[in-house]
Design a binder for these strands. Structure first.
Lengths: 229, 229
DNA sequence: TAGATTGTTAATCGATTAACAATC
DNA sequence: TAGATTGTTAATCGATTAACAATC
């Protein structure tokens, strides 16, 4: 550092646990907003989510100074800020790959639309599924992924195929230019570093629940795992 | 401690991150087993999951000494051990509450059956759903939860109702005697300490993906979040 | 035996919580 | 102003990684 008083170093990147909590803050703030509240303090926000007030302030401070000493945070403003940070202030055209039980269910899940994740393109390599349409969208072969990325501006993909097909599909998705994968298949995916993968593993979560009930019941520890529901 | 050479202190409880990885080890070991392999070293197991070898050994050591120096771990034996630790070596009779899109999908999801989570009882307080059956199971009112717990030995519940009904349903579930909740509703649940809650929040996970693609793309960081899919 | 690999201790790294001056 | 609350530094806590003697 050449000039000690001009801090040109980039700010610390936020740990991923912080990003997860940011989603929870957003949801709680939206709820407070619907109730007509205008401001909230870090301790009030923390209490609603079971978190420490210092943690709320520190998490938000990774991204900027959004509060006013003595007053707290203006709810509407903070909602706008967090939406921008998370990137949910715009549409995310998304491909859904694999139209088994889980894939078809996700297609109907309203929670995605609410956050502007738009499933605009369906893929399944089972010939019996091709030609069919779900929700008005035709089912295509994954060979058509590159064309769909170009035509529809796809940016994310949800992979809902069986485990033994998941890595192959992931490779296709990546080479088609998609940069974010939500993986519902029960297997680890290996992708290049410029691609992000979020794993949604229902079995892992159910097993965690079984473990807690089996081993911890009565021990007194509330075991609220991962991002609160 | 009165007798320094007789360590009567209880072993350290495993952090929940360890329990999550235990599920991943189990799945990978089962896969190795299907391939006909007999033993695996901590570094081989770690590599298949993108984890450090020391972490694999340390995680397993929370629960006992399962390996042999120079040889590694016997796959079949370790599978049996981990199943026992997680509690997935027995059936888990489970209630499914809320039969919207997501609830009906979960009912058909094969991954649960594979791990011996049996959905044996359905609940929904929408009068239009009552009398209907899904998968051969009748839909009942949540008022009947206590009777179902007694009759069917229910131990877990999956809550798939809208956010504004989730806490009310959780209270009913808890007072009916259920000790473990898988919460799919997008809201935090508050329960007594002897009840475990695992939150499955698809929006939080999708938002994390949006954040990574939006802010980190090209930065070189693989961002494999939570338990690998 | 020599080579491989464990279980465990020590070192490192990162995340959470406490404390408090600055500020509205 | 007095009371409340932030942003941030320091202290604590916990989790990961490195190192290595013990062991097969």
């Amino acid at each position: 550092m050449r000039e000690p008083h001009h801090d040109t170093s980039s700010p610390k990147p936020a740990p991923k646990a912080v990003v997860g909590r940011l989603s929870l803050y957003l949801r709680q703030l939206e709820s407070f907003g619907r109730q007509g509240r205008e401001t909230v303090s870090s301790s009030q926000l923390g209490q609603a989510l079971g978190l420490n007030d210092a943690q709320v302030r520190k998490d938000l401070a990774y991204f900027g100074q959004f509060g006013q000493p003595g007053l707290g945070y203006r709810i509407d403003d903070l909602v706008v800020e967090i939406r921008g940070i998370l990137g949910v202030d715009r549409d995310w055209p998304t491909a859904l790959i694999g139209l088994g039980n889980l894939g078809r269910a996700l297609l109907g899940y309203k929670g995605f639309r609410l956050r502007r994740f738009r499933v605009v393109s369906l893929f399944d390599n089972d010939p019996r599924k091709q030609g069919h349409a779900f929700d008005g969208l035709p089912v295509r072969h994954t060979d058509e992924l590159p064309a769909a990325v170009a035509d529809e501006g796809l940016r994310l993909a949800m992979i809902c195929v069986p485990a033994d097909a998941a890595q192959r599909v992931a490779d296709q998705v990546v080479s088609a230019g998609i940069r974010g994968i939500l993986n519902f298949a029960p297997t680890s995916l290996f992708v290049p570093p410029e691609v992000s993968v979020v794993a949604v593993d229902l079995s892992v979560q159910l097993e965690h629940l079984a473990y807690s009930v089996h081993n911890l019941h009565g021990s007194g520890a509330t075991d609220d795992v991962s991002a609160a529901g």
